[in-house]
Design a protein around this nucleic acid. Sequence first.
DNA 1: CAATCGTCCTGCGGGC
DNA 2: TGCCCGCAGGACGATT
Length: 274
Amino acid sequence: MPELPEIEVLKGEIKARVVGRQIVTVDVSDPNVINMSPEMFASTLAGKKITGAGRRGKMLLIYLEEGLCLIIHFMLFGRIRLSPEVGEGAQVVLNLDDRRCLFFSQLALGAGVHLHQGEEIDSLPQVTKLGVDALSRELDFEQFTRMISRSKAKIKALLMDQSFISGIGNTYADEILFEAKINPERSGKSLGSEEILAVYRPLKNMLVEAITAGGAGSDDFAHLDGSKGGFIPKVHGLEDKPCLVCGLGIRKTKVGGRGTYYCPQCQNYFRRSG
DNA sequence: CAATCGTCCTGCGGGC
DNA sequence: TGCCCGCAGGACGATT
């Protein structure tokens, strides 16, 4: 499922390949995923030029002429694709002036393509709720330490809490904690300064590396052209596979109701690293 | 078929 | 005692 790096990759692709194009017509075959009548949606978008792209947490922004903005949340399986032909299962199709179309599919569980005025975006409830962006310079080590050490919640739950830090989902939370050698069940409060640094470093670095790699290589993410990213998880989704560091089997549990993968040896709960 | 995913919401209980 | 916070559990919908 698309997290911060995947959205960032899509944002770059929109900027490189779609900005400057004009939307000619719009087809909506699933009105559930938009936030107004299909007629209003289509007539508002028709004739508008695509002017930019952005991101808020795990949401993709597509800016248009006249201050309009599409805000897209992909949730679990949502897809966006740029192609000369509309793919199967397209729910919303933007037909562009170069005969290509930008279309969305597999939007479910409240995922959607919502049209707003650009200046409204940062007042939307789903945006105001977001905590500091994981890649923001504002989230420096001091700030991160303050936030983590104040909380009794489990570190994995904290990393995934979008109102706390935005952009990190289940996959990268597991990968960051594996890299940090910190057990996902440890509370924020229980972490010493070195341990917090051990989480902070991969938090910043891994997200950047994943963007550079073109996002996740998993089946649930694809680029605008359908190709996959190159980021391969070391623990997430790899139950019973040998840990790349110690060779012990990777274990799966639940933390905060989410499937959680970790190495019981490298991420021993009682391990103390300092 | 049932588990799963991310988000939102509700209700419970522990701890300050 | 009262309040806040963490967290479990359910709803949602489609995919594996």
